[in-house]
Write a protein that binds this DNA or RNA. Structure first.
Lengths: 143, 143
DNA sequence: ATATACTCTCCAGCCAGCTAGAGATATAAG
DNA sequence: CTTATATCTCTAGCTGGCTGGAGAGTATAT
């Protein structure tokens, strides 16, 4: 009967279980991504074990490419009650669009780089000191 | 005959021609990406017109996904004389590899997101308050 | 009581690539 | 000469996601 809640975790224990640095956990709490259940009389943070799945969700979402802001939005909706799932799906859809966009950009960049390399290769034999990539840089800056 | 070099440009003119903010040009100079030809007696920067193609090269390379560090390396080699083209090609090849890697990552993320969305969709009808994305977050954090 | 480990807050800095503002001086035009 | 504009240096901030250290206090085991 000595402790009413053996369940509450101090930050170090949360760190151990979540594999996250103590600093990061504090940082998340400051940012509002997670909450403490309460504090000890001395001021130590005490978390319910549910913080672990929350942290897990945060890391998984991060790994999936969501920013902490995105995640905070989602968790905020989740906390406020109804049907976070809808907004989660929405966020994820958005992210997918962003990913598609980014991949297209990257594809373009890649093609451009390849063109430039090919040009350089062509020139190479003829004119070893001329570098088309650098030299004719004058034109297409802004457009 | 009044001016020996009409050719030298002040920073504002460079800004006009390059479409880059004055601040950015100063910033590039501080970073060593470009150099001033000299200064006026009053301390105004004076650039040779060649700085324009250099800036153009910088921006083009940036648009192609190179970092300022990358660009600085390339320009450093170019400045030091021999055959920058080789190292430029090398950098570009490297960047292409990075792009490929990044695209693979993105593809994976996208697939994961799609899986999660699909899961959520399945559950949706059955159990409107259950969000698989959030709820069963407990497992695969670190691995 | 004390040694040890844990935790607290606050402040600072890192990466990149700028951007903003203050306050001083330079130059060009009239 | 005056005024307007351009430029100077210096300091500081922004975004995102932490990370590090100082210095002080707390909890626990013996």
């Amino acid at each position: 009967m000595s402790e009413a809640q053996t369940e509450l975790l101090r930050i170090g224990q949360v760190s151990d279980h979540s594999q996250l640095p103590v600093k990061t956990i504090r940082f998340y709490e400051e940012r509002g991504l997670i909450q403490t259940a309460k504090r000890t009389s001395g001021g130590f943070r005490l978390f319910t074990p549910s913080v672990l799945s929350r942290l897990s969700f945060i890391r998984r979402s991060q790994a999936l490419g969501l920013s902490l802001n995105d995640i905070q939005d989602i968790l905020g909706i989740a906390d406020s009650g109804q049907r976070p799932c809808k907004s989660v799906r929405h966020k994820f859809q958005e992210k997918i669009s962003e990913i598609d966009e980014r991949m297209q950009q990257l594809q373009q960049l890649k093609e451009q780089l390849q063109i430039l390399i090919a040009e350089a290769d062509e020139r190479e034999g003829l004119d070893a000191d001329y570098c088309p990539i650098i030299e004719h840089a004058g034109e297409s800056t802004s457009s």
